Amino acid sequence: MTTVTVAAPPKPRAERRAVRGLRAAGLYTVSVLVGLGVWQLLALHYGPSLVASPHETLTAAGDLAADGTLTDSVIASSRRILIGWGLGLLVGVPAGLLVGQIKVVRRLLEPYIEFFRFIPPVAFVTLAVVWLGIGESSKVVLIFYTSVFIVILNTSAGVMSVGESKLRAAASLGASRGQILRGIVLPSTVPHIVTGARLAMGNSFLTIVSAEIVAAQVGLGSLIWTSRNYGRIDWVFVGIITLGILGFVFDRVLRIVASRVLRRYGVKL
């Protein structure tokens, strides 16, 4: 007697997506729990004067949130980062397209790009305060400075990576420069632009701390520095962890927005 094996029907796409989501959530949970365990062991080993425990940090975060200090710091730092980073994208993407496409522009701007991108924003903190004061402008300009060159370099690299054969083929078919830019150059450059935007966002978080330490009364950098002066290690941990969480959230939101808005270019993040 012959036994007939019937293959199980494939799982629906929604079910497979749900399984993958649960698996990813489980891995994230395990990773966070392991990290908290290591953190707790370090706190027990070194003591509260050097390493605040997760419970002490959570309690300090609750106290800082209750009096509004943490909320005000998050809002102030987020506003400065988003404005400076946004201006960096607004200037960096068009400049990168020009640098990548037009050799004359590349030769004119390349010496300045290669010179200034090696000077860290921290070196300009004092000058920014002297020239622009201790207001918001100095912090925003420093974040713009740390963002714009990263975006320009990544965008221009994306433009220059487009195959010359594609450009010649489009031109031979009668495509105008604008059509080539929209139909060939941009789709190939978008992944580089998104990567540059993410790298610029990370560097913006590095810059905001040094800028706020020197010239700010409110912000996560100012909170970390003030906590150090008062010897509150738990507050320092609150500021550091809040910066990490904020950066993680910003990067995730950027990836989601980019994947949805730029899907028509064939970008997969």
Rank of each mutant, 00 (worst) to 15 (best):
E212Y: 05
S204W: 02
R107A: 04
F237R: 12
L220D: 01
L33V: 14
P10V: 00
S156H: 08
L173W: 01
P187A: 13
R255T: 11
L58I: 14
R260P: 07
R264W: 15
S188W: 03
A43K: 10
L186E: 02
L173H: 02
S73R: 03
R107L: 10
V249C: 14
W39R: 14
A25T: 07
A43N: 07
Y46A: 12
R20S: 06
S53P: 09
P187T: 09
S73H: 02
L109F: 13
P48I: 01
L108V: 15
G86Q: 01
G100M: 07
V129E: 04
L206C: 08
P191F: 11
G183C: 02
L127E: 04
S31L: 12
P9Q: 11
A76R: 11
A175C: 10
G239D: 05
M160H: 06
G133E: 02
A76W: 03
L58M: 14
I184S: 07
E110G: 04
I208Y: 03
I256G: 04
G202V: 08
E114G: 01
T57D: 09
A200L: 08
V194F: 03
V141S: 13
P120N: 04
V238A: 10
P9S: 09
S137R: 12
S156N: 10
T146D: 09
G174E: 05
Q40C: 02
G47D: 00
F115E: 01
L70H: 06
G100R: 12
S147L: 04
G174H: 07
V257N: 07
V194W: 02
L50D: 01
N229Y: 07
A52R: 08
V93A: 07
S172M: 11
F149C: 08
V129A: 12
R79S: 09
N154R: 06
V130N: 08
G47L: 01
F149V: 06
V190W: 04
V93I: 15
T207Q: 02
A211P: 03
T126W: 02
G135F: 08
L44N: 14
K11F: 04
L223P: 07
E15S: 11
A95K: 05
A170G: 11
G86M: 04
V151A: 04
A215D: 01
D72E: 10
I152L: 14
V209F: 08
F205V: 05
L33H: 07
V162A: 10
I180G: 09
F248M: 14
Y265K: 04
I184V: 15
D234I: 12
F248Y: 14
I213T: 11
T57W: 11
T207L: 01
F116A: 01
T2I: 08
I119Q: 06
I245L: 15
L132A: 06
D63M: 13
V140K: 08
L262V: 01
V51E: 00
S147W: 06
R23Q: 14
A18Y: 05
I240E: 06
I102Y: 14
S161W: 01
G26I: 03
E164I: 04
N203A: 06
L206T: 13
V151E: 03
